[in-house]
């Protein structure tokens, strides 16, 4: 049944606000760089997942598989490009 109150959206919004606040609060805490980066990574990917699943309805149709494969492929390429580039242009010179 369709419901008037968009419960899923509100939950999604609240959790993404929370995640943002966690990320922002890192500015005021004096954590180590590694720890902060790990927290940032986790919050960022969680936020992305919330947008994809809750707001963008990525999984609602028969094309679910195609959509997820496209997204995973894109993320794979993006990560390969980022880390490969750093490997070849920065880390390789030590």
């Amino acid at each position: 049944m369709k419901e008037l109150f968009p419960r899923k959206h509100v939950y999604g919004f609240i959790s993404s606000l929370l995640l943002s606040i966690i990320a922002l609060s890192l500015y005021y805490f004096d954590l180590t760089f590694q720890l902060s980066m790990s927290i940032l990574l986790i919050t960022a990917f969680f936020q992305a997942a919330i947008q994809l699943i809750v707001f963008m309805h990525a999984g609602e149709t028969e094309d679910k598989k195609s959509i997820y494969i496209t997204i995973y492929y894109g993320v794979f390429i993006a990560l390969v490009t980022i880390f490969g580039t750093l490997l070849a242009l920065i880390w390789g010179y030590y």
């Binding site: 794979f76 390969v80 490009t81 490969g84 070849a88 242009l89 390789g92 010179y93 030590y94």
Partner: peptide, 18 residues
């Protein structure tokens, strides 16, 4: 095909490991 591009510039000095 997305994992090999550095072979176009092996000689750029990024060292033996890369």
């Amino acid at each position: 095909s997305f994992l090999v591009w550095v072979h176009h510039f092996f000689t750029m000095g990024q060292g033996a490991l890369v």
